Amino acid sequence: MVVRREPTLADVAEVAGVSLTTVSRVLNNRGYLSQETKDRVARAIAQLNYRPNQVARALHGKSTNIIGVIVPTVALPFFGEVAAEIENALAAHQYRMLVCNSMGRADREREYLDLLVSHRVDGIISGAHNENLREYQTVRMPLVTIDRDLSPSIPNIRCANEAAARDATRLLLDRGARRPALLTSRTGPHNRREAGYRSVLEQAGIEPVIFTVDFHTPDAERARMIDAHLDGAADVIDAVFATDDLSAAAVLDWAQRHGRRVPQDFKVIGFDGTSAVRRALPGLATVRQPIAELARTAVEVLLAQIRAQSEGEQEAAPVDSPIELPGLLLTGTTT
């Protein structure tokens, strides 16, 4: 049986007929070397399809040009599109991306964080949803988050959630809703979309109705929980503001199964506005997050940290965090 393996630096040296030290000097562009020697090493590298060991480069204090990105899962439209836009933004600066799907598990996120730090990636962008992971406080490499409050010292790039939620809730009231409910993942002061919903209802003198289904709930159980919430309040509410589009889609399904005409009898608005959901449900009213701008801004802030570190500075110029970018209200046909 032939055991296949990746070529090593020693293999390159043997094919080129030079020493290991010479190959290392060519790769790192150190010292004087004749063009003939450089060409021989280059031909050997091409012949063997040799790939430099990025971990070894990092251990020698060199950039790997790799950024780690932690998300719940790219199977979700929002995070899939965020990851794609981050990859595009990084490619423009000759960086590559290593994507880690935490699948909503804190233990897996810890493992991935340890993996990225130990492999000396140049920086990390985190968009996972596990709260209170103390491990982030020990990270000493460039780090930014997307829509996640980890620490006042860690830049957070996000949609202007509270303002966008106010717009979404006002739209429901303007279109005739008298008792709109909020369907969200977790309730509390950290939830700025909930804050926007509550502020509009308080101004209108309407009592809030809030349903929670945790973000990481398995799909089948999630659908049952949403149905149970809506069944229990069917005689009370006439609209739902869901803080993500997939939940809004589940609400639309419930309304159809229960004979509620949308938007005449029942109004629905979501949040995210991803291309995937817009194609599947083109009429869904929603707030479109500025996904490309969020990704580009996160990359710009992270690269500023990387440049500062490479220039020997303690830290990059401080940024006002969170950095909020406006969402776009799409009125659709469901309100």
Score class of each variant (00 low, 15 high):
V287W: 11
H60E: 10
R166E: 15
F266N: 00
R175N: 05
P282N: 00
S63F: 03
P326F: 12
G196I: 04
A308E: 07
A56L: 06
P318C: 08
V71C: 05
L294F: 13
D107H: 09
Y95H: 10
A249H: 07
V55L: 15
T217R: 11
R257F: 07
R175Y: 13
A44V: 02
G127Q: 04
A83E: 03
F79S: 02
S321F: 10
V71E: 11
T37L: 13
N132I: 00
L325R: 01
E36T: 09
A280H: 03
V144Q: 10
G232E: 04
P77I: 02
R261L: 08
A317C: 04
V209H: 13
A292H: 09
M141L: 15
R5E: 02
R140M: 09
E293F: 01
E202H: 06
R148Y: 08
V301D: 03
H216V: 00
P142Y: 13
Q203M: 07
L48W: 12
L59G: 11
T217N: 12
G68V: 03
T8V: 04
R140T: 12
S34T: 15
V144G: 12
L27H: 06
H119F: 13
L59S: 05
N53H: 11
H216G: 00
T145P: 09
T169L: 14
A250V: 00
G283P: 07
G273H: 01
